[in-house]
Design a protein around this nucleic acid. Structure first.
Lengths: 259, 259
DNA sequence: TAGTGGTCTAGACCACATC
DNA sequence: ATGTGGTCTAGACCACTAG
């Protein structure tokens, strides 16, 4: 049997079991890659039902501590987060992955010309007459593991001549390599739980926190060249930045724009 | 009874029910603040067990679409995210909240002098002899709703004379107001599912995606004045930034430091 | 075929809110 | 006292993996 222990604040059984298992893993009683007892056996070990064991395991999965494989078992997952920079230079995912020792590649899910929504028209500053844009969805891999889904929209003038390259490579690098300047960007970072569809794309559990990096990137003359977002597994990714404050601004504050 | 529908990819029942409920809410069949049928009644409506209804509701809760209150019911939750800027000026939470129409305040959970861990010594660049630091935990409220937990560590020389003010006000504003310059910062953003303890502090469901804003802030002469992190509810908060790329840097890339 | 995780059910008991 | 959500149980059936 398992209890929440003396002096500890009252907490659900499945939380106590999560912590117990986490401790055992941290102490090395189960090492990286090793298989844990089956859900049924864990239930016997802790004296709880399989349902409760499953809730405990779900907690650990969402923390990235273990992974499950249907038909095989539960395994300890050792992993470090991949860091992406928000400072200069603008987010080159492939560079960041390479620097940190991962093989990187993309798989294009779709690439097609569509009618721009009003939101896209606004973001890309399109005139109404040229409201055709290219929309792309692709998966970003690090060492054969899908870590992010990227969704981009390009003005037709940008994407049309680069259709081939954009489907095979990373967005920013492809644009840079084809002499399209990336001067500035408005970006935002937020998080939401993985939907069912996204959890399939990223081989992630439903509800896993997903980091959303949204951006509008501007080229010469403040002209938007791409807008979109990168949805990445929060257990694999982290964004870092260096901030310099200018004296004048710190006093009065600035309006905060949306992206 | 409920089915996943024709032509739709096979998906669990509770996901289908989540979507069904979300559609009904989006269509206005349940408006903001309105109470949904009870779990038991929803089970009858959809022809599924209460357990399955609960999983469906859990999905909606983590998306911030509904909130539950024990003993009362399930309610539709309309809400917009609060935006915080990563650009200049350095993240003044209180300014951002005020600008966006929220009443802001903090509640100090703890404020005490402790021995710095090696990690803190490194981050605050302390000499071994002066390894005493002040550690503070406080909750940040927007309109009486707890939206973030902030954990800070200060060098003793900084925090000692400001003990009172730091416990009552926002960190950055308190430092600024007391003539401590904030020149630059190394920051990172990541996300993880709410632990049980954190879910209590923030009145959030277990596993809700939490945004983690970590920082080391430097004053004059690159001297660290505070390090810590702000753990905020992802359904309430969003970070935005403006990036300017310098031509020289975009070509070669820069090493990516951790924080 | 046997063992594993994935989904779902029916029902119990509890804590909390309301009348 | 009643109705609500929160937790837990015992057991069923399925899909996947492996020998």
């Amino acid at each position: 049997m398992v209890s929440s222990g003396p002096g500890i604040q009252k907490q659900p059984l499945h939380v106590a079991i999560s912590q117990k298992l986490k401790e055992q893993i941290d102490l090395g009683q189960y090492s990286v890659g090793e298989q844990l007892p089956s859900e049924f056996n864990l239930g016997e070990l802790f004296g709880v039902s399989r349902t409760t064991v499953r809730r405990a395991i779900a907690n650990l999965i969402k923390q990235g501590i273990v992974v499950t494989q249907q038909g095989k078992g539960i395994f300890v997952s050792g992993r470090q987060k991949i860091r992406f920079s928000l400072s200069n230079p603008l987010m080159h995912f492939d560079q960041a992955l390479q620097q940190q020792g991962y093989a990187s590649r993309v798989k294009s899910l779709s690439f097609q010309q569509i009618n721009a929504s009003t939101e896209i028209i606004l973001k890309l500053q399109l005139s109404d007459r040229t409201s055709q844009v290219y929309r792309q969805e692709k998966i970003i891999y690090a060492d054969d593991t899908p870590i992010a889904l990227e969704i981009d929209c390009f003005p037709a003038a940008i994407a049309s001549p680069l259709a081939e390259a954009l489907q095979q490579g990373f967005t920013y690098s492809t644009l840079s390599d084809n002499n399209i300047a990336l001067k500035s960007a408005k970006v935002s970072l937020e998080s939401f739980p993985a939907t069912y569809e996204l959890s399939n794309h990223l081989a992630a559990p439903l509800g896993l926190p997903i980091l959303v990096f949204s951006y509008i990137v501007y080229g010469d003359n403040q002209q938007p060249v791409v807008c979109g977002k990168t949805l990445s597994r929060s257990d694999w990714t982290q964004y870092v930045s260096q901030i310099e404050t200018s004296e004048a601004m710190t006093k009065k504050g600035l309006p905060i724009a949306s992206v």
